[in-house]
């Protein structure tokens, strides 16, 4: 729950190129997958992701510390939700819970109406690979792989994109983020902003419906940050859903909805 900010339809030269991009014709075979995946009919009525009464309490020698207190949050398809708050507010903790990287102390998490926390660890991992694209603050690319291999590895792990199509898809994603000319470089040879673009391309590799980004611009300068935000907005305009946490209030202009978090609680 939070305040809704007006959606800004930012168009740029890059976005012109993206909108001309032919939507890839390869779709994962959802009939093989028993895990939760969104369908068109879901988007209207059921939130894409819903957190109910999520708590995260850390046990320390000096006592229990609640990092998150009763979080209730719904994300609908097509939204660009930004969660903003100061350091220590609980943003990253919330992201970790929503991505199931961490487990809540109590509460529920639903994706398209199905409880994700009821899945086994391996089922959750597969669900995450299929339905979430995660973008980390510090990029987290694999240093010994070049950037197209970094994008491709997601597809190799999930195994849903046919093998012959993977490299081409990886190159196409790099084209989308403007890095096709650097495809054979390793991460150490490109800038921080470029690395974050690669991370975004990787997050999109398996065509997940929801992108979750944890402080994606936290390590970047303002100009590069703007470019990254443009990218996110472009994906939203193409039907993706983006959830982002940040402490940078300058990013709020890109959101369709802003939620504030303070001391582990979402502010109304």
């Amino acid at each position: 729950m939070g305040r809704k900010v007006g959606y800004l339809d930012v168009r740029s030269e890059r976005m012109e190129k993206m909108t001309n991009f032919v939507v890839d014709e390869i779709h994962p075979d959802q009939s093989k997958d028993s895990l939760v995946s969104p369908t068109e009919s879901d988007s209207a009525s059921v939130p894409l992701m819903e957190a109910q009464d999520l708590w995260k309490v850390y046990q320390t020698p000096s006592g229990d510390v609640p990092a998150l207190k009763g979080i209730n949050l719904s994300i609908h398809a097509g939204e660009f939700v930004i969660i903003v708050g100061k350091s220590g507010a609980g943003k990253s903790t919330l992201v970790n819970l929503l991505t199931t990287i961490d487990a809540p102390t109590k509460g529920k998490l639903f994706f398209c109406g199905t409880s994700v926390l009821d899945l086994s660890e391996e089922e959750r991992t597969r669900w995450r690979g299929k339905n979430l694209g995660i973008v980390f603050q510090f990029f987290q690319l694999f240093p010994t792989l070049n950037i197209w291999e970094n994008v491709k590895i997601s597809m190799d792990l999930l195994g849903e994109i046919p093998v012959p199509a993977r490299k081409e898809r990886a190159m196409e994603l790099l084209r989308q983020v403007g890095l096709e000319d650097h495809a054979r470089k390793v991460p150490a040879k490109i800038s921080g902003g470029q690395q974050q673009r690669v991370a975004i391309a990787r997050a999109l590799a398996n065509d997940p419906p929801l992108l979750i980004a944890d402080e994606p611009t936290g390590n970047l300068d303002s100009r590069t940050s703007e470019e990254i935000m443009e990218l996110f907005a472009s994906f939203v305009s193409r039907g993706k859903t983006v959830l982002m946490v940040t402490h940078d209030r300058g990013a709020l202009k890109w959101a369709t909805r802003v939620v504030e978090i303070l001391d582990g609680e979402l502010q109304r």
């Binding site: 991505t99 391996e122 991992t125 995660i134 980390f136 997601s154 792990l157």
Partner: peptide, 16 residues
Amino acid sequence: TKQIGILRAIGAARKQ
């Protein structure tokens, strides 16, 4: 360790 964590985060099964 961190790379293993990232692999798991992006969908790698433990057996992989």
